[in-house]
Amino acid sequence: MYTQAMDIPDESGKKLAVVPGTASELEAAFEARIAADGRIEPQDWMPDAYRRTLVRQISQHAHSEIVGMLPEGNWISRAPSLKRKAILIAKVQDEGGHGLYLYSAAETLGTGRDEMLAGLHSGKAKYSSIFNYPTLTWADVGVIGWLVDGAAIMNQIPLCRCSYGPYARAMIRVCKEESFHQRQGYEALLVMMKGTDEQRAMVQDAVNRYWWKCLAMFGPPDADSPHSAQGMRWGIKRISNDELRQKFIDATVPQAKVLGVTLPDPALKWNEERQHYDYGQIDWTEFWNTVEGNGPCNKERLATRVKAHNDGQWVRDAALAYARKQKERAIKEAA
């Protein structure tokens, strides 16, 4: 899953140690590689701001994956069939896996996982705001797969060409798994739409609740997106928020028709001249309010992550203590 988060400023960046060499030569080499659409690797010199931007973006992405485990995890215990339960566990586990290799990608920039988690837990670091909404019925699980993961894929595919090598490579795998999740979500909804009246109503209700939130996932309109221009110049961001949003809407409208659900936007209609769908106004006040911590589930999501981390402290301490003892024993044996 993903996130508008690349555009959300926070305080989680970190300065790197100064690398020898004249700043201008190093910067020129960096700029030349970016201009040639080459990859920057961990050992390469890079400007502080580029590093900070990446740490912020990758860690926000990783945080989104692990916070995103909670709304869907909410339905694992109540999944209505064993097959759907297995699919959901596997999916949520994939999201945790994405978190793991994104944290690893961010660590190549010199910031440790503990530090990134401290940023999340203190509320300094952001995560995708889509996970601050509740999953109220089983249909939400399908809709998250179809629409939230669908929006995520739109955001993420360009990231496979991101200028920072470890992030770009991580995104290739993430995208493959997300596409799978999207198809699984859509398939679950197709089955429900062929089912009982209650099941169909459940799907429509979930679409109504998630549609506008998904459009907001692409981030603020280009005109109000503070990080976009620099991100584009650095090859971190490739396609603008508004372009991606439009692409998502154009792809989703026909899927909604096949499914037999109505997208809750009276202004949604094909524009022959633009060759795109027109759509209504996104409620950015509500979006920013949620990003700022005042959405329906922000406090629960964050407190749950903090509690899991604090409750697990004794387990991590034990693992470290045991590893230390084993090391000492090995040294003693060798002596």
Binding site: M69, Q93, V315
Partner: peptide
């Protein structure tokens, strides 16, 4: 499965 999202460390989740 009740541990999903609540494990002591991500690897254990």
């Amino acid at each position: 499965a009740e541990w999903c999202g609540h494990g002591p460390i991500l690897e254990e989740d």
